[in-house]
């Protein structure tokens, strides 16, 4: 299609009027009146308040679990048919917060740690002792509960089921 060169404007004449028809949409996209000015400021304020509250109150607490213990109620009569040799584990206080262990297990009377005690109990379960052989944990009165529970946990871990606590020494 041949292009028509633009006509030069002559002096004293009016500029040529662009007669091209530009199509304008009659329907301008204007949002409805109610939606146009949605003020989120107060909502954002509330959200920030909530956020600050939850940040301040959030406590990333460590999970807790329980070690089940069935303690004797002190009722009934002792069974004399099968006399069992209970395993005694003494938890003795050492220093201010430390502890040491002694047992009546032959050749393992002074386990160096709770882990060593666990290994000893585990190795003897089934051979020397049954799983329901009574274990009596005998802590000193001044031993921390932490250490007593650690010993109890080692007994549970070694799959013994009849574990008892004695009165404080």
């Amino acid at each position: 299609m041949a292009q028509v060169p633009p006509q030069k404007q002559q002096a004293g004449t009016k500029p040529a009027v662009d007669e091209t028809v530009h199509h304008e949409s009659h329907t301008k996209r204007v949002p409805p009146k109610g939606i146009r000015d949605l003020n989120l400021t107060s909502m954002l304020d509330v959200c920030f308040q909530l956020l600050i509250f939850f940040i301040l109150t959030a406590s990333f607490a460590k999970g807790e679990g329980f070690l089940a213990a069935d303690l004797p109620l002190g009722q009934g009569t002792p069974n004399k048919d099968t006399p069992e040799q209970p395993i005694n584990i003494n938890v003795l206080v050492e220093g201010n917060t430390g502890f040491r262990l002694t047992t009546n297990i032959s050749r393992a009377q002074r386990p160096a740690s709770v882990r060593a005690l666990f290994r000893e109990l585990k190795s003897r379960r089934g051979s020397t002792y049954d799983h329901d052989n009574p274990i009596i944990i005998k802590p000193d009165g001044q031993v921390r509960w932490d250490h007593v529970v650690n010993v109890y946990n080692a007994c549970v871990r070694a799959k013994y089921s009849n574990i008892n606590f004695s009165e404080a020494n």
Binding site: A69, D70, P72, L73, Q142, V143, R144, W145
Partner: peptide
């Protein structure tokens, strides 16, 4: 200390509850 925990265990058992769960 254990000397302070043991009487609590005893008090629980005296109430007729033998199942005590040690929380760790």
């Amino acid at each position: 200390h254990y000397v302070n925990v043991q009487p609590v265990m005893k008090a629980i058992v005296q109430a007729g509850v033998s199942k005590i769960n040690v929380i760790t």
